[in-house]
Write a protein that binds this DNA or RNA. Structure first.
Length: 854
DNA sequence: GTAGGGTTAG
């Protein structure tokens, strides 16, 4: 892509590292013809030459010649003033240093007020606020009295480094000198206060001004928009128009960017129509702001159209559209724009390269990524931290860990982002251990560091650890944000910790965290998994926007309950709102049908996928269908479906059939399914367990022993059943037959009492659920110590009457525990929720929400 | 002389 790089880098021709970060057309290197001529320099001609100097090199040579000829002196309006002005104008850090050295005079000549003003301005625009302030102090020490020109520069310097207390002192000096009536000074003060987060003080000043101009209004508008008060910014703009002040292009840029921040397309369009009403011509900076606004408001096509129609695109406009494409993850468009730019646009700079490299990271495009890296090195852009950080991220996402580490090691100034990029890369690479170690040893962590680790822990199912880390974050006084809460919400969901889930909601409200699409969806899912469908739907209904994922989460709530009608109703509502279904929503729908035993609806939805919505069923959908048919006992139809599948059935499909065989006690078919399964996924624990369970419940103990032996030989271990219950914010976990709990004795006594009352009510343990070849009494004993029973008993002991008991199980609940829970809910008058690995059961007054179908 | 646009990691 960069083969046609005709403008070879010239940075090494220009002395000084600061120049290296800016790309100059090679023409600027040419020495002006005037300098080569042997004509003698006069005071007048040198003055003109000084003003026209474009590079420090030219200036230095001219300076040298003039000194030789004695054409410089400290008199007012002398050439020295022009030399300094010109040097400042060049604007590089080196030229600023040059100016600084030129005006200090060993002969005791004093620098003029003009020189100080000039250099303070130079430092301010270079962002070197502290240097500007130092210079101001120096001029006071030298007894030079600042004037009305000094203060705007100085205040701009204070704004750049957010030096509030210094700026306030400057304000004091302004008042002392009676300069507050100067409109330039007042405007600068408004800007300064706004930048330092004191927009109210700026407003006070604005209100007290006797005379205001368009810059006064614009400064305040921009102040509001920059402090996240974009609504005020826009309304101030309309006030300004009403007051008869005509906006200029800068005003429009500020207003349009306020609309962009609000993501309010309608408002943006309204401002656009104002522009044409006022008859303003669209300047390049305005077009740029419009492109950005349309992009941020999500109307990417409109943005692209304006961009394409713009005849004189500048570098910033290219950079604007590219960075927005990156944000929208339209990475391939970034490369299209880059292509156009290389052909007929301005030379890519560091910001361009940042977007390009980010796009390569998104696309996993190593080849463009590598040439971008080369371009960065050729042009000396790697000194900019952000570029190197992006390169690390790109190599990590392209799977080139070594290349990323090499860049990392060579970075002299690693920032927190550098470390974060590395950690995130390691997490994606699956190296949690190293990621943890680096996180632990990091000297400076920011919110992203914490969020990365919390997200990583959730990804690897270390939910308690994720919550633990969040607690540590709280202890260190770092509040979480939207991203943190998405991670914590999913951790809560998987743990089924409802109390914690509710606390998460309160935390979000208290900390005024905006519930966006992602967080909203995470919360719906969290409550759904915690067995609180009404809270889940409450969150869903309050979401301002809902995409297909949000609807899927809500349909998932219905699926958890086995509420087919509810699921289909939501789906229809979603279609009405013109949300396009994807493959995932059908998984939720089919699951809902499966749990609800709604075979007809399931079949119908399955066939409508391709016909009505153009979505070809994937293997998971076939899995869902096999599950649906199998659960309903339609084993033959399930087998037929498997045989007619256009895709090779995988382990999930056979697994579903096997599970159905267990439920409907079809040993023969189970044997067949298990054989297929072992071929496909010999390492899968589930198959062995299921198969041995099937043999066990059919009483075929020799077969059970054989499978168990196979498991042992292959080193496969059964995942132990475990149930947890949250009591007073703490999660208590029990495994089957667990005696390790501190309250073990109490739990045992409680279980005895329950069993007594249950048998009085006619309960007979269903020992076919015990999968060991032991005698009946032993079976009963084992059965009575199933993890969910232990958790329920503990719940009865520790929580008061009327408080629902909520248990989360890692495996599917067995039918005996199901009957047990139904009776306990009746005899103890308690609501009980058990969420297993696939749905939840809500027990009340002796009945279960699943209507015994699961 | 004051006001404005593009920036990586979760």
């Amino acid at each position: 892509m960069f083969a046609g790089d005709m403008h070879s880098p010239i940075y090494n021709c220009i002395t000084g590292q600061y120049m290296a970060t800016t790309l100059f057309p090679s023409s600027t290197l040419l020495v002006p013809a005037s300098l080569k001529e042997a004509n003698p320099i006069t005071r007048n001609s040198s003055s003109k030459l000084l003003v026209n100097c474009k590079t420090l090199k030219e200036l230095k040579q001219l300076h040298c010649d003039m000194m030789k000829k004695g054409l410089l002196c400290h008199k007012p309006a002398s050439n020295l003033n022009k030399l300094i002005a010109s040097s400042v104008q060049i604007g590089t850090l080196e030229s600023l240093d040059y100016a600084r050295n030129a005006f200090g005079d060993d002969d005791g000549n004093m620098a003029s007020l003009f020189m100080y003003n000039c250099l303070i301005r130079g430092y301010a625009s270079a962002g070197l606020g502290d240097q500007a302030i130092l210079l101001y102090v120096q001029m006071l020490v030298m007894g030079i009295v600042p004037d009305k020109y000094t203060f705007p520069f100085l205040l701009s310097a204070c704004s750049k480094i957010l030096a509030l207390s210094e700026g306030v002192q400057v304000h004091g000096a302004v008042l002392k000198m009676g300069l507050e009536g100067d409109i330039f000074v007042s405007n600068s003060l408004i800007h300064f206060y706004a930048e330092c987060g004191k927009v109210d003080l700026g407003r006070k000043l604005f209100d007290g001004m006797l005379e205001r101009n368009v810059v006064s209004w614009t400064s305040l508008i921009n102040g509001y928009s920059g402090r996240d008060l974009s609504k005020e910014a826009v309304s101030l703009f309309f006030q300004m128009v009403e007051a008869g002040v005509e906006p200029n292009p800068v005003t429009m840029v500020c207003v349009i960017s306020a609309c962009a921040k609000l993501k309010d397309l309608e408002l943006g369009k309204k401002v656009c129509s104002y522009i044409s009403e006022l008859g303003m011509e669209l300047s390049t900076i305005m077009v740029n702001a419009l492109v950005d606004m349309y992009m941020k408001c999500g109307d990417i096509c409109a943005a692209r159209q304006i961009f394409d129609e713009c005849a004189n695109k500048n570098l910033v406009m290219y950079n604007t559209i590219m960075s927005n494409y990156v944000h929208h993850e339209w990475a391939s468009d970034v490369l299209v724009i880059l292509d156009e730019m290389l052909q007929k646009g301005p030379r890519p700079d560091k910001v361009t390269m940042l977007s390009t490299i980010a796009a390569c990271a998104q696309l996993g495009d190593l080849s463009v990524g590598k040439s971008s890296h080369a371009y960065v090195l050729r042009n000396g852009l790697e000194g900019w931290d952000n570029i190197s950080n992006a390169i690390i991220d790109m190599y990590m996402k392209c799977g080139k860990r070594e290349a990323a580490c090499k860049v990392f090691e060579h970075m002299p100034n690693k920032t927190v982002v550098t470390w974060n990029s590395l950690i995130a890369g390691l997490v994606r690479d699956g190296d949690m251990e190293l990621a943890w170690r680096i996180f632990d040893e990091m000297l400076e962590r920011d919110l992203v560091s914490w969020n990365t680790m919390i997200g990583a822990l959730v990804q690897v199912s270390m939910f308690e650890e994720a919550i633990e880390l969040f607690r540590e974050m709280q202890n260190q006084g770092i509040p979480g944000d939207r991203v943190t809460m998405v991670g914590i919400a999913s951790a809560c969901g998987y743990l089924g910790a409802l109390d914690l889930a509710k606390w998460v909601c309160t935390y979000i409200e208290k900390n005024d965290i905006h519930v966006d699409l992602q967080l909203g969806t995470a919360l719906v899912d969290m409550f759904s998994r915690c067995g609180d469908p009404s809270s889940a739907m409450h969150v869903f209904k309050r979401m301002e926007k809902r995409d297909v994922s949000a609807w899927t989460a809500a349909i998932g709530v219905m699926a958890m309950e086995g509420n087919t009608e509810g699921a289909i109703e939501l789906f229809n509502e979603m279609l009405e709102q013109k949300v396009k279904p994807d493959d995932v929503v059908f998984v939720a729908l089919l699951t809902a049908c499966s749990h609800g035993g709604s075979v007809d609806q399931g079949r119908q939805l399955f066939w409508s996928m391709e016909k009505a919505h153009g979505i070809r069923p994937h293997i998971v959908h076939y899995g869902c269908m096999v599950d649906l048919l199998g659960r309903a006992g339609l084993l033959e139809e399930a087998v037929d479906l498997i045989q007619s599948m256009p895709i090779e059935p995988n382990d999930v499909v056979w697994g579903s059939l096997l599970a159905a065989c267990r439920k409907h006690k079809n040993v023969e078919l189970a044997h067949y399914a298990a054989e297929k399964l072992t071929q496909l996924a010999p390492e899968r624990v589930g198959i062995h367990v299921l198969l041995s369970n099937i043999y066990a419940s059919a009483g075929k103990w020799t077969d059970v022993a054989r499978v168990r032996l196979q498991m042992k030989e292959k080193g496969v271990q059964k995942v132990p059943g475990s149930s947890s219950i949250e009591v007073q914010g703490l999660i208590h976990e029990f495994t089957s037959g667990d005696e390790s709990h501190a309250e073990n004795t109490h739990i045992g006594l409680m279980l005895e009492e329950i069993n007594c009352r249950l048998s009085e009510a006619g309960y007979v343990p269903d020992t076919t659920n015990v999968l060991l070849d032991v005698d009946e009494q032993e079976k009963e004993h084992l059965l009575s110590r199933h993890s969910e029973k232990l958790a329920m008993a503990y719940g009865l002991i520790t929580t008061g009457q009327g408080i629902p008991i909520r248990v989360v199980k890692n495996l599917r609940m067995c039918s005996d525990c199901h009957s047990f829970a139904k009776l306990v809910s009746k005899l103890y008058n308690r609501e009980i929720t058990v969420r297993d690995n696939n749905r939840y059961h809500f027990f009340k007054e002796g009945f279960c929400s699943c209507r015994d179908y699961w």
